[in-house]
Design a protein around this nucleic acid. Structure first.
Lengths: 119, 119
DNA sequence: TTGCCTGTTTACTATATACTTTACACAATC
DNA sequence: GATTGTGTAAAGTATATAGTAAACAGGCAA
């Protein structure tokens, strides 16, 4: 169903397995995520849709990946972001529509300003 | 299920019905939206979950409402916004998380700058 | 008083999401 | 050579989403 997410996860898991040697078998990762191995197997091979938001976040933690990136690969947006948008829909809708067409540089500048709390 | 969305829609529809006199019965609006009257009835009374994104957008157009606001009342985010976030997940995630805690003023300033294309 | 329009009720349906359970085959290990 | 660990396969399940279809009761208009 969604090959990209699964491929990415499998690759990352195998990399970790090669380096760490322990704790990154499909079964162990599945257990740590809170799903059955059969399900993670299907997910990694793109034979099933991606897991739920909650499970993806746990997986991101386990693999040392950015949760928002992993969610994005699964075609999802974190619920805290959704809620932020839903609280001020007009404002955020306008901002995001402007920013999606803005050059990378501008976004980085705004992100930096935001990080520094320049209100 | 979701009373707020339905209540808002019904109120707005009845207001329009009172002013325009024509075209805003539940049955007519349902037809224009592309759903059965029974479904819109349940939606307005909060007896059913809200319609799909597509139907909500048509409804917004019919009622002269902002689609993003109506979607927000239904607990949804427009798919074009979702896609924008998914394309640059780290950047947008950081921006939105900063902005959700920022004062209204700052958001308005950034929105204005965005509108004016100040990159 | 027939016919149309109003909203509503009841029962049903199709598809997607997010999984589980059980069992299998192969490899390494003890 | 029995056990443990590896990934995979097949089938089933629970819940949510997004509705439809058909019928019903009351108002109003000619």
């Amino acid at each position: 169903m969604n090959t990209e997410f699964g491929q990415y996860v499998r690759q990352r898991r195998l990399e970790l397995q090669a380096v760490r040697r322990r704790g990154f078998s499909l079964r162990q990762v599945a257990k740590a995520m809170g799903v059955q191995p059969s399900f993670l197997s299907k997910v990694e091979r793109g034979d099933s849709g991606p897991p739920s938001e909650e499970k993806i976040k746990r997986l991101a933690h386990i693999l040392g990946e950015d949760a928002d990136v992993l969610l994005a690969l699964a075609g999802k947006v974190s619920s805290d972001l959704r809620e932020a948008i839903i609280k001020r829909p007009k404002l955020f809708a306008e901002l995001i529509r402007q920013m999606k067409d803005a050059p990378e540089q501008a976004l980085l500048r705004i992100a930096r300003e935001a990080r520094e709390g320049k209100w």
